[in-house]
């Protein structure tokens, strides 16, 4: 039970950390200055969220591994983030379509987690839900712009959506950890969450004149630590300094 609890909160923290790391790669490279600031801002929101969740996971585990140890000293197989978070950024449409799919997920998830039996997690969710709502508005705005924009932007947004759709099944397919947490009143019902997500996302995609891709093969495995080939490189960059200079502080 307590190991499932640790694993559950850790996974939430890993999603925030890995996605934040990916978004931070845009810093200095976004298409124009205002976007650069906004993207870095969003990346920092995710890193801040990761800090809260990993600290809480650390407290649940109770083995003295603090948030930094969890972020910088674990190997690939120990990370439980969804595969969609670690995919390379691609073009700006890919980054923002992914962001939209995940922002809506996070908004719904944190809304539900405010009622979690884990009071600390409920408090983190109450804080995170506000920024998640903003993130969804921002990325949703871009999805509309790309989808209902030029032929070029629509083609890119559709290609991104087609590529990403197979990575969304993982978000709503409960595994043993999710089931245990739902039974304990800590996590929400994923089937219900998934149905609401689909309703919101599909309506928005239609408004953006994008086609909802067919539900065929779905990728899975991130939660068990079975990652894509992109994860190792991401961790190498993120963890390099702590690995090369253990305990370095500045």
């Amino acid at each position: 039970m307590s190991s499932a609890h640790f694993r559950y909160v850790l996974r939430l923290g890993d999603n925030a950390l890995v996605l934040g790391q990916r978004l931070s790669e845009w810093c200095g490279h976004s298409p124009f200055l205002e976007e650069d600031i906004a993207m870095a801002n969003t990346a920092l929101d995710h890193i801040g969220r990761a800090r809260m969740l990993l600290s809480h996971a650390s407290a649940i585990e109770g083995k003295g591994r603090d948030e930094d140890a969890l972020a910088y000293l674990r190997d690939e197989r120990e990370f439980g983030n969804f595969l969609i978070c670690e995919l390379p950024n691609g073009d700006y449409a890919f980054t923002l379509v992914r962001q939209y799919l995940l922002d809506v997920y996070h908004q719904l998830l944190f809304e539900a987690l405010r009622a979690s039996a884990d009071e600390e997690l409920a408090a983190i969710a109450a804080k995170a839900v506000k920024e998640a709502a903003y993130h969804a508005r921002r990325s949703g705005d871009w999805v509309l712009r790309f989808g209902d924009g030029t032929d070029e932007s629509q083609a890119r947004a559709q290609a991104a959506l087609d590529a990403l759709w197979s990575y969304t099944g993982e978000l709503f397919t409960p595994d043993a950890v999710d089931d245990a947490m739902q039974a304990a009143g800590i996590a929400p019902d994923l089937a219900q969450l998934g149905a609401r997500w689909r309703q919101i996302v599909e309506a928005h995609l239609v408004a953006a004149t994008l086609n909802v891709p067919p539900d065929d093969w779905q990728a899975d495995g991130g939660r068990e630590g079975l990652h894509t080939e992109h994860m190792g490189r991401l961790l190498a960059e993120m963890q390099f300094v702590q690995r090369a200079y253990p305990g370095l502080d500045w």
């Binding site: 600031i37 903003y134 508005r137 705005d141």
Partner: peptide, 11 residues
């Protein structure tokens, strides 16, 4: 205007 509002919020 919508994009300006969002960018103003972030900037």
């Amino acid at each position: 205007a919508e994009q300006a509002l969002l960018a103003a919020r972030d900037t």
